[in-house]
Design a protein around this nucleic acid. Sequence first.
DNA 1: CCATTTATGGATCGATCGTTCCAGAAATGG
DNA 2: CCATTTCTGGAACGATCGATCCATAAATGG
Lengths: 178, 178
Amino acid sequence: MQVFWARGYDSASTRDLLEAMGLSRSSLYQTFGNKEQLYLEVLRRYREALIDRLSRRLEAAPSAMAFLESLFCETANEAGSERATRGCLIFNSASELSQRDTLPSQHARQSMAAITALFHQAVARAQAEGDIAPDRNTDALASYLTMGMAGLRTLLKSGADAGQAGPAAELLLDGLRH
Amino acid sequence: MQVFWARGYDSASTRDLLEAMGLSRSSLYQTFGNKEQLYLEVLRRYREALIDRLSRRLEAAPSAMAFLESLFCETANEAGSERATRGCLIFNSASELSQRDTLPSQHARQSMAAITALFHQAVARAQAEGDIAPDRNTDALASYLTMGMAGLRTLLKSGADAGQAGPAAELLLDGLRH
DNA sequence: CCATTTATGGATCGATCGTTCCAGAAATGG
DNA sequence: CCATTTCTGGAACGATCGATCCATAAATGG
């Protein structure tokens, strides 16, 4: 996962993968089939771990709005770090593989939808809690947040500092509160 | 440019490039040096053409706010098209090359800054025209718009339809008007 | 029209790509 | 402890990568 995350699908060579996993070629191909299937397994685990983690965070948060605020602000504060240039594996794969019609690219699209679904949950709860007007379009707000996070990730990947990413994320959150 | 745009830097093979350009290997290497320098030239031309086109559009627009509205709405309406899955070469290269320290990656970062600078112009004019409150932070709004366009591009690359992209872009513009 | 420069086609380079194969080592189970 | 299965190291596969080289063709200029 680390290798695919840092280098993308095409640029990650089987050499890199073997070295990082501490496996022999035979083991990799016997266990995972080939590079694409290994990548699919990585995407599957990444999405599951991400959605689970965010779902738990949302559930444990004092309010859905507090969850969204902390999520976007913490992400913006990654500015300048090596973590920031890596971005999110889901957005990365969606960007790299958008032109292809392969299982990984389909998986990436589904993962984007899963992120939007999670934001949908958060927005709906924030509306129930009175932090977002209940008459606002929940679907639209969910897509808006996915778009915002994807854009924030691109901003961070391109080397934006906290002085750019922070206020931009704040304005994004302002758009929720209306 | 078409080849790099559609396939990215690494995945674009010299074979693809030669075929698209109608040149022989000798001519390509004699004229452009190597693949990286050719890519740099492509990035340079793309940025120049994009910034020039948008600058002229901004200048010709009845108001800066009208320019921003049409830009984001037209982009959102590309949903589902082949053009949408290609995205923007600047965001694409920034995403693909963020981990590297090469001339193309530096160029991509500078291009991101150029986009933000253009949005800065637009926001400043919209403030002068009374469509955006003059006391709002122009820098922050410019970064916000770059983030929004990058996110919108990612949304479109991942196959979002107009029903998702359109309202998300509308909400983004609402954030300008406050 | 000839001398000089410039462009081209194609063979070829070493390196690396993802993948397969097989002999031998390790683990397993009765 | 032996028979059987499972795993591993390393060689090797064909294909493709970016890049170089050279003989030849085309263009140029006096």
